[in-house]
């Protein structure tokens, strides 16, 4: 009952916490051309663990903003305007906070749970692996 596959179907979180699951899901998203959503999700987790006193942290926040939010990529399209404005203003004012991407991550996660994750569980990539 606690096989990796049983965990993958439990929740998106369990899938992403498992190395094979995360990589297989990534392969699926690459094919669906929305791998940016997953990379953004992991970037948010990585950012939360960074030391705010490290000058690198501001550069990473800017890099995440530039790569996923400022442009019109799939992540940006799925975020609420207010969420994007909040992040843009935080970066402009250089007010970096560990939780500054949390709201954006939640929004992306909800879309993934409702769409890509459900599609993944019925995809041939997943079924072949099973």
């Amino acid at each position: 009952p606690d096989s990796p596959l049983a965990r993958w179907t439990k929740s998106l979180h369990s899938l992403l916490g498992d190395q094979d699951g995360a990589y297989l899901f990534r392969t699926f998203l690459e094919r669906e051309q929305c791998v940016d959503t997953l990379d953004f999700w992991f970037a948010c987790n990585g950012f939360r663990q960074m030391n705010l006193k490290d000058t690198k942290t501001l550069r990473v926040a800017k890099a995440i903003y530039k790569r996923y939010i400022e442009n019109n990529c799939i992540v940006s399209k799925q975020l609420k305007p207010a969420t994007k404005t909040y992040i843009r203003d935080s970066i402009k004012k250089q007010q970096i906070d560990s939780i500054m991407f949390d709201q954006a991550q939640t929004e992306i996660q909800t879309v993934m749970e409702e769409n890509a994750y459900q599609m993944f569980l019925t995809s041939d990539i997943y079924l072949e692996y099973v």
Binding site: Q19, A43, K56, V60, K62, A63, R67
Partner: peptide, 20 residues
């Protein structure tokens, strides 16, 4: 100095699950 892409990649990799 690391490029922006390297920093971002490092950040993503740090959050990816590791082999148990």
């Amino acid at each position: 100095i690391d490029s922006e892409d390297d920093l971002l990649q490092e950040c993503i990799s740090s959050a990816m699950p590791k082999k148990k």
